[in-house]
Design a protein around this nucleic acid. Structure first.
Length: 552
RNA sequence: GCGCCCGUAGCUCAGCGGAUAGAGCAAUUGACUACGGAUCAAUAGGCCGGGGGUUCAAAUCCCUCCGGGCGCACCA
């Protein structure tokens, strides 16, 4: 018996009672979502439906709850129903009904926890998208971890997901990068608006190595062009390699240049013009975005004839829509939150629905802390903290877990000293160890002659087993909620909760009999529960892109 | 001035309008001749930034004030 079954059964009970009392509102399973009471004395599942309906039915919550409780107690698998407090209906399942879940999970394996929220829907996730003018800084790394996890979560809800990296190779920043490389090569100081740091001289040296001996003889403009073309390729290769090492694989690397060369940008502007959303002023061409909710209008063609920044975004969005993506996500840092309104205005102007066809996710800043001090970063000074630095300091698993564990709405401090520890006080190990332990327990059990020939759910009657089963039952809903709210950190928190419940169960209940004892059905049945926990921990860590080792 | 995010235990952070607000770390005290002690048990630690409001019910929603971060270009 999982909570979805119970909700459905309860729905028929409550609907009948409501109708009999003259209720007119049509109820759905969403009205009957059950919650896990914090206090074990309040049963396995609790419903607040009586408090919600009482007023409209002209009856007191307690009275209504009592009436529902009587009927609910008759449902299959329900051991008892109590009414408590202002009108909570607390349901306790019998051990067999609750325990059956363990076998279900093992049999469903990877399918347990999947849902159909985004079945068959084409979803584009654009994230990282750091310009190839330097290594990926820590803000981009946050999205590498969170975006990839979100992709996995959407996939588990049936979504057809494309991970996309927008490669901005068309702007002035690339010119600055090229001039910085050239300056390094010529032994000049970095340009005022350029980039510094060891990686610049490194890239410059590598560019030089590709054209040995000839560089000095060509004109400066050609030198700069060479540094631009080769330097960007090298930098981009480094970025791809770092992401790959981090376990993030993009399906599409989209080049902004493509939009300009294909004329897509002109076409996008023309489309706005046809919609009457374009006007000329002060020698520039403007998108009247204020008509669609923006704070101010935006320049699409500057008075010098160059395209404004938003022009590329217009074309890029239309391109994604033409490629068939119904839902498009762009993940940006807190310093880009001002983009939300203008891009939503664009969405609306094109006849799409803001916040549905296009969503912007804004992640707050990440600070890395070392020796108790935040590490100050400056791109100009070259003191960026990069993806490679993070991986080197704490490893891929801890790095990803640390970044995905907190809500993107919160600024986070990541203590490299803490997360770098290969010891117990590192949260990722708590979960990974729990997974490794499920395998260790299974190995020992099998070696002691415990097999899976019997599953008798009613034998899972210990209190720690009841709690553990309750946590396992929540997994599908947690995944669905993580998808709906675009919040992968919920999976991480859940995995810690499950790991804790498992460790406590391990402490209380043996799967392998003691030396002199015989193997019985309790051991066999517990082995199923052990395997079920291993499965769900593996699935959870999988959704986070963190490995689930069988031994540590 | 306007906008977005945050303010919860000593620290880093969870918390879907519900019951006695949680986890990890740090602190104190216990538990290995028993499946891995990378674990578990217990103790201690909170005007949920302040003040109003909505609600049967507010850490959660609304208003306001205070504090912090980040933005408000014909830059990208």
């Amino acid at each position: 018996m999982n909570p979805a079954d119970l909700s459905a059964a309860l729905l028929t009970v409550v609907t009948a009672i409501s109708t009999a009392r003259g209720g007119t509102r049509e109820l759905t399973v969403d009205d009957l979502l059950l919650e896990r009471p914090r206090n074990r004395d309040h049963g396995d599942w609790a419903s607040n439906i009586a408090m919600k309906l009482a007023k409209s039915l002209g009856v007191s919550p307690r009275e209504l709850a009592d009436e529902i409780a009587v009927e609910a107690a008759q449902l299959a698998g329900v051991a008892s129903v109590d009414v408590a407090g202002p009108g909570f209906i607390n349901i306790t399942l019998d051990a067999a009904a609750a325990g059956a879940l363990a076998k279900t999970i093992v049999e469903q394996a990877d399918a347990y926890g999947r849902g159909d929220l985004y079945d068959g829907i084409a979803i584009n996730l654009e994230f990282v998208s750091a310009n190839p003018t330097g290594p990926i800084h820590i803000g981009g790394v946050r999205w590498a971890a969170v975006g990839d996890s979100l992709a996995r979560i959407f996939q588990s809800q049936g979504g057809i997901v494309t991970r996309e990296y927008y490669f901005n190779d068309h702007g002035a920043q690339i010119d600055r990068f090229a001039r910085s490389l050239l300056a390094s090569f010529l032994g000049e100081p970095a340009p005022e608006d350029g980039y510094g740091g060891a990686y610049i001289s490194d890239i410059a040296a590598r560019v030089l190595a590709t054209y040995p001996g000839t560089l000095e003889r060509i004109p400066r403009a050609e030198q700069q062009e060479l540094f631009r073309a080769v330097g960007v390729e090298l930098m981009f290769g480094d970025i791809k390699a770092a992401l790959h090492e981090f376990g993030v694989k993009f399906d599409v690397y989209f080049h902004e240049n493509e939009l300009h060369e294909s004329g897509a940008v002109e076409k996008a502007i023309q489309r706005l013009r046809d919609l009457g959303a374009i006007y000329e002023a002060d020698g520039a061409t403007w998108f009247r975005s204020t008509d669609y909710g923006d704070d101010k209008d935006r320049v699409v063609i500057k008075s010098d004839g160059e395209f404004g920044y938003i022009s590329g975004d217009l074309a890029y969005y239309l391109n994604k829509r033409e490629r068939g993506f119904e839902r498009n996500f762009i993940m940006l840092g807190a310093d880009h939150h001002g983009y939300v309104k203008r891009l939503m205005a664009m969405t609306k102007a094109f006849g799409d629905e803001p916040y549905v066809n296009l969503e912007l996710l804004i992640g707050q800043m990440v600070n890395l802390v070392r020796d108790g001090e935040p590490m100050r970063m400056s791109k100009r000074a070259g003191t960026v903290v990069t993806l490679e630095d993070l991986v080197e300091a704490v490893g891929v698993d801890a790095g990803r877990y640390a970044l995905v564990r907190s809500s993107i709405d919160s600024q986070v401090d990541i203590d490299l000293d803490l997360w770098g520890r290969k010891t117990n006080d590192n949260p990722v190990f708590y979960v990974q160890y729990a997974h490794a332990r499920t395998h260790s327990v299974a190995r020992n059990a099998e070696a002691s002659g415990v097999d899976r020939s019997v599953f008798e759910a009613s034998l899972l009657s210990d209190e720690t087993e009841s709690i553990l089963l309750g946590v396992l039952a929540e997994f599908p809903r947690v995944v669905r909620q993580a998808a709906e709210l675009r919040e992968p950190h919920r999976i991480a928190r859940y995995s810690e909760q499950l790991a804790g419940a498992y460790h406590r169960w391990y402490d209380a209940c043996r799967v392998t009999p003691l030396a002199d004892d015989a193997v019985d059905d309790v051991h066999r049945t517990r082995l199923w529960l052990n395997d079920a926990v291993g499965q769900v921990l593996r699935s959870s860590l999988g959704l986070l892109g963190v490995s689930a080792p069988e031994r540590m």
